[in-house]
């Protein structure tokens, strides 16, 4: 019995909790991609770098706070800086929209042209971020690092197997719940949100009934920018912040959005967790888990790992390919906010 409990704790510690936190970050990222797709009708390749920009802005402000001794311990200081990061990201997005995307929108360019333009924006932002903050790893976390520590957990439960819950993980999950809740409330219960859905459903008809397209596009960028800054900062808080990683993050984020059905916010949310859980479960070494669950003599010699963690991004790719073959519209048949 205790072995089973231990096995469960082990799995929670190395699979369940990390995947929940990572899934929350992916879901927030994928929601931004999906919103932009639903309203502006192109796949925004710059989204990863927008997250990076948001996280960087928050970190810069955080340094300011740290230098002047402002702190909200035990919570990490970066949370206090996050609103500024969000504002900076929105401002940056509005400038980019004015100078790049609006031109193609007015010309009614094909989505693929906007997609290529967004790739250009991606490279530009990537350069800008590295120019400002440098290519190195930055430590984001401060304050109380853990909600539950391994030692405390062992004392509390008397189990051999310890469990740790990092503050960043708790915050990620909580932030995802709050953001997703707010977003859905906004889309389903406010007039502005309904205008956005209407615009996403049928642009011509929405225009006819006087829905202001500029306003809808503005809201889309505000929402996407906020979500991106939050997702990027949480990811940085949970791991560490490194400009380079956001290029790689683009794949699981798009995979999440597409798996759920691009354009569908519910899809993006669910997709984020599907991708996160797949990545973590496939790359986890089950050796110790099996050691708890089966008699000693059966315990595997190897790591019992399906795929090395080096290949974790391949998992998103595989899921993406499978979904596109089996159900190209995604779980929630996309293209509707």
């Amino acid at each position: 019995m205790e072995d089973i409990l231990n096995a469960f704790v082990l799995l929670s510690n190395f699979v369940l909790i990390p995947a929940l936190a990572y899934g929350s970050q992916l879901a927030l990222g994928a929601l931004g991609v999906t919103l932009v797709y639903g309203i502006l009708r192109f796949s925004n390749f710059a989204h990863g770098e927008i997250m990076s920009f948001g996280a960087m802005s928050a970190i810069l402000v955080m340094w300011g706070f740290q230098a002047s001794g402002v702190s909200i311990a035990p919570l990490p200081t970066v949370l206090l800086a996050l609103p500024f990061g969000i504002l900076a990201t929105i401002a940056m997005l509005l400038i980019v929209d004015r100078s790049v995307f609006r031109y193609y929108r007015k010309k009614r360019a094909a989505p693929v042209i906007l997609l290529i333009a967004s790739a250009g924006v991606m490279f530009f932002l990537n350069g800008l971020v590295r120019f400002i903050i440098g290519p190195d790893d930055q430590r984001v976390v401060d304050g109380e690092r853990f909600i539950i520590r391994v030692r405390e957990f062992k004392q509390m439960t008397g189990l051999d197997q310890g469990l740790a819950l990092k503050t960043s993980q708790g915050i990620s999950v909580l932030a995802a719940i709050v953001c997703v809740g707010l977003l859905f409330w906004f889309l389903n219960h406010t007039r502005s949100g309904k205008s956005m859905r209407a615009y996403s459903d049928n642009e011509d008809l929405a225009l006819l009934s006087g829905v202001n397209p500029d306003r809808v596009v503005l809201y889309a960028w505000i929402l996407a920018g906020s979500l991106a800054a939050i997702a990027g900062t949480l990811y940085g808080l949970d791991k560490s912040y490194k400009p380079f990683t956001f290029l790689q993050l683009l794949l699981p984020i798009f995979a999440a959005a597409i798996v759920g059905g691009i354009g569908s916010p519910i899809g993006a949310t669910v997709g984020g967790f599907v991708i996160a859980f797949s990545e973590v479960t496939v790359t986890y070494a089950y050796k110790r888990f099996l050691a708890y669950m089966v008699p000693d003599s059966w315990a595997p010699e190897g790591l019992a790992q399906l795929l090395s963690t080096d290949y974790k991004f391949a998992v998103s790719f595989m899921i993406l390919v499978i979904v596109l073959i089996v159900r190209p519209t995604g779980i929630f048949s996309g293209k509707t906010l």
Partner: peptide
């Protein structure tokens, strides 16, 4: 029509 909105919401738009 706005396919993901209800009939009433369609009219209210």
């Amino acid at each position: 029509e706005f396919h993901s909105l209800t009939v009433r919401d369609n009219l209210m738009m």
